[in-house]
């Protein structure tokens, strides 16, 4: 008779707990040949799982690894994965909580940009695996009558992400991934990063002042007029044509439409 559902679940949680904690004995039912103990054999398996997860984190967060060094990164990754094992069998989804972990991990408290660099790296991979969609065509926007432009709303592209930072996380991310020197970067300069994948290649942009407010408003459903007004109000030097041009080129949106409330009252 197969084990009952609660029994199976308890066996599974015992197994995954033993996978993380070397102090725990091998799970019940795991044994060597002729009923011998399997402590060493299970340790090899546990090691393979641990090393594989650390390798996955190193692949997902190469800039973070370069910033702290490989030895430090692997030690830190081990602590992280004990606290937050993967919830998906798909390892490229791992590490969603690394930024929050880094924010409270005391040994990196002197690197205030590290959490946002890890957010950019996670967003990069999310964009890489996001659903395909054609970006909004400039011609589609150009075809909208001038009097309707203000009431337009936009559908975010599945790959579009934004990371707003109190630090120079975007410059540090880019320099680190491209193995460029970091000496000229002022680490505490606030930066906004935009991650998109208009076709098959992920793109990361450093946004000029005001653009993040503009894009964020549009991504959360504001009309074009509302978003432009907001951005200009917060940043008088905001360059609206350049932002619209960048939004088309980067592929932040996949479609635009007249907001329903506004179409009822076109004036």
């Amino acid at each position: 008779m197969p084990p009952s559902e609660p029994a199976r679940r308890s066996a599974q949680s015992e197994f995954s707990a033993a996978l993380i904690n070397p102090d725990l004995p091998p799970p019940v039912g795991v044994s060597g040949p002729r009923g011998k103990g399997a402590r060493k054999r299970f340790a090899v398996y546990r090691n393979t799982v641990t090393v594989t997860r650390i390798d996955a984190l190193a692949d997902i967060f190469p800039a973070v690894q370069r910033l702290v060094g490989a030895d430090f990164f692997r030690g830190m990754a081990r602590i992280y994965l004990a606290q937050e094992p993967p919830v998906s069998a798909v390892l490229f989804e791992y590490g969603q909580g690394l930024a929050a972990f880094l924010e409270r991990f005391e040994p990196v408290s002197e690197l205030p940009y590290l959490p946002d660099v890890s957010r950019l790296e996670r967003a990069w991979l999310d964009a890489f695996h996001a659903a395909d969609a054609d970006p909004l065509a400039p011609a589609a926007l150009g075809a909208v009558p001038a009097e309707d432009l203000g009431d337009l709303t936009f559908t975010p592209h599945p790959a579009a992400r934004m990371v707003r930072s109190r630090t120079a996380a975007v410059s540090i991310f880019s320099a680190s991934r491209e193995q460029r020197p970091l000496e000229t970067i002022r680490p505490l300069e606030p930066e906004d990063g935009l991650i998109t994948r208009p076709a098959h290649e992920v793109q990361v942009r450093l946004l000029p002042p005001g653009a993040a407010d503009f894009f964020k408003a549009l991504m959360t459903g504001a009309t074009l007029a509302e978003a432009a007004t907001l951005a200009l109000g917060r940043q008088p030097g905001f360059d609206l044509p350049a932002a619209i041009s960048a939004m088309l080129e980067a592929g932040i949106f996949s479609a635009c439409s007249l907001s329903p409330a506004k179409t009822e009252h076109p004036q």
């Binding site: 370069r66 910033l67 702290v68 060094g69 030895d71 430090f72 040994p107 990196v108 002197e110 690197l111 940009y113 990069w124 975007v170 410059s171 540090i172 880019s174 991934r177 491209e178 020197p181 970091l182 000496e183 000229t184 970067i185 002022r186 680490p187 300069e189 290649e201 992920v202 793109q203 990361v204 942009r205 450093l206 946004l207 000029p208 350049a242 041009s245 960048a246």
Partner: peptide
């Protein structure tokens, strides 16, 4: 070994990086 990272060498010099230019297509 945090200090082995290049981060602490970042100084106040140097201008900001370009704005709407794509920073990288890594």
């Amino acid at each position: 070994s945090v200090e082995a990272g290049t981060c602490t060498t970042m100084s106040l010099e140097g201008g900001r990086m370009g704005s709407l230019e794509p920073l990288d297509r890594d």
